[in-house]
Amino acid sequence: MHRDRYLWLLTERNLASRGGKVRVSALLEAFKSYYSYDLLERLQCVPNEQDKNNWLFRLVRSPRQARHPLYHLLLIQLLGYTAEEFFQLPDSPPDAFKPFGSKPWPCLNPVCQQFQQLSIKECQVTYDKQRSRITGTFSCTCGFTYSRLSLDSLPEDRFRIGKVKSYGQLWEKILKNFWANPTVSIEEIAKQLRVDYQTVKRQALRLGLSFPRPGPTARVAKINGELLRDTQNGQVTQPSKLESYRMAWLEAVKENPHIGRTTLERMFQRIYSWLYIYDQQWLQAHLSSWD
């Protein structure tokens, strides 16, 4: 079809997107720069700039009726072809209007054996008319699914994630293994899974993993429980226990460097409350970093 050829050539000149959306303002400006107004007036082919349905724009939209041959000749010449050359072009050029290129696409799950390998053979392309944007969604057999909004303009764009829609069963399994290992910090988990600290915490919460984790934070929880029993029994703490509570608070701070003071106080409320009552001067000194 003529329109397919037009879109292909317009895309090459950045007058249409790779998704097939014509940049009508740019096309009109290019047309006015190429042809003089006097010539177009003599040919009675001046496009009405105020009319979004003028002959030039109708020419590159889905055809509903035939257009005057002169209109086609003017546009073909603007695009750098003779009529003979234009009609020898293929109706559907290879890879035309594929906004994310041709299959296959890479898996971008860092814990998958096919990481950055071209193993994904299907791409779901959706177009949001209201926002005038195209989304490509890619799913690997490992379950990792990601999407991108912008179109691929450079080869390296294929290895860029716009949004993770599902981490998949393999990624979640690795997270669970890391989470159960007290020797691996959350920062290290985030590094290995190539996400940020808060994403690790959110996904662990979504998967119902234990809070706090095994390790230093778990020891804090144990002291939390001992403190509750001591308080309920009306016991007065020993100096050694005072050091234990201080250590528990310091470990809680160390294990949670990315959360605010209020959240930390809420997470470890019993330890915080006890120190506030019995060791307030020390506690205030160790809260100064938030002030």
Rank of each mutant, 00 (worst) to 15 (best):
A252R: 01
R202M: 06
R261E: 15
Q117E: 13
A96P: 08
R13Q: 15
S153I: 03
N48K: 13
Q77C: 06
V60D: 01
P214A: 11
V111R: 04
L242C: 08
D128T: 07
Q203H: 09
E243Q: 14
A66W: 04
Y272F: 15
Q113E: 09
S288M: 12
N53D: 14
T231S: 01
D230I: 01
A83C: 13
Q235C: 08
T82V: 05
P99Q: 12
E251W: 04
L154T: 09
Q114P: 03
S102N: 13
P47K: 02
H72A: 15
R67H: 15
W105Y: 11
E41M: 13
P69T: 10
D95K: 14
E255A: 09
R131L: 15
G208I: 04
G20N: 07
K201M: 02
G234Q: 02
L78A: 09
P47C: 05
Y167A: 00
R213Q: 11
L59G: 03
Q88W: 10
G80W: 05
A180R: 09
L56D: 02
W171Q: 03
L10P: 02
S92C: 12
Q269N: 10
L264W: 11
K32M: 10
C112V: 00
L228Q: 10
Q116W: 08
A26W: 01
L40W: 09
L59F: 08
P106L: 02
